[in-house]
Design a binder for these strands. Sequence first.
DNA 1: ATTAATTTTGTAATCATTACAAAATAATAC
DNA 2: GTATTATTTTGTAATGATTACAAAATTAAT
Lengths: 139, 139
Amino acid sequence: MEQQQISTYLLKNGIRPLQKRVKIMGYLVSKRNHPTVEMIYSDLVHEIKGLSKTTVYNVLNLFVQSGVALALNIEGNEIRYDADTSTHGHFKCRVCSGVIDFRIKQEELPKPMLDGFRIEEHHFYLMGVCSFCCNKIEA
Amino acid sequence: MEQQQISTYLLKNGIRPLQKRVKIMGYLVSKRNHPTVEMIYSDLVHEIKGLSKTTVYNVLNLFVQSGVALALNIEGNEIRYDADTSTHGHFKCRVCSGVIDFRIKQEELPKPMLDGFRIEEHHFYLMGVCSFCCNKIEA
DNA sequence: ATTAATTTTGTAATCATTACAAAATAATAC
DNA sequence: GTATTATTTTGTAATGATTACAAAATTAAT
C-alpha cells in the first residue's frame, strides 16, 4: 500500500495523517508480522530521523482507540499490534515466538450465551509449535 | 473443596501439597474470580502468616507449568489465573473489569487450517460490557 | 509571518514480573 | 530423635514494558 492510500485510510478513521503515523501504519500493513513496540521502534528508528519510542507507544494507542489496529495480548509480557482488523485468529509458536494469522469466518465463532452483554471484541488465540519448528524438532 | 481433596489433586499432578500451595489452590478453586497475583496476595496475606508475593508468583508459575491452572492474558497489563482447566471461554467487562467464564464445547471451537502445527492451548476471549454494567449505564 | 493548537520527545515514574542468595521448612538417613 | 540434605520460601534488587509529564518541535489557522 502506498503512503497516499494510507493517509486516506487514516483520515477516514479520524486520524490526521502525520508523517510518523503514516510510516508506522505503513510498517504494520506491509510487514504483517504482529510486531511489538520494540520491533517497530528498532526497525524504524534508522528510517525515521529522531523517532522516539514514546511516539511509537502514542501512535499505536491512538490506532487502537481509533479502531485501525488491534492490540494482541497473547502472552503477558508483551503487546503485539495488528493492522488487520477483520475477523481472524492468531497462532503463536512457543519455539520461534512467531505469530501467524489464520482465517475464521465470523459465523464460525462460537456464540456463547451471554444475554444482555454487549460484546465489542473477539480474540481467539492458539498456542503450540508451528509446522516449521515441528519439522526442525523431528529432524 | 476440602484441603484433603486439594492435596490429593495436587499430588496427582506431581505437585507436593505444601501448606501454602494448598491454600492458594483452595483460593482459586473456591473464589473462581480469575484473580491477579495482587488479588491473591492481598486476600491471603492476612490468613497465611508471613506470605510473600514472590511465593504467590512461584506457586502460580508451578501450577501453570503442571497444568492445574491457566494463565489468562486478556489484557496486557495483568495476568489472571484460573483453576478451571477445562475448555471454556472468558469475557472481560471494560466497565467493572470483572472476568466471567462461559461454556464452549470443544467441538464448537473453530478448527483452523493449520496443517503440521501442534496446537497445545486454546484461548477465546471476549471483551465488552457485561449485562450488569449495561443496565447501570441505561438507568 | 504570528499565534494557537497539536504532536513529539526524553526523562522519570510506575507497575508487574523475575533473579537470586539467604533463611526457613520439609524429607531422609542414621 | 537428631543430623544431614534437598526443597521451598522470603525479601530485596533487577528487569522490562508502559505511562506521565513538561519542554521542544511541528503543524494548522489567523
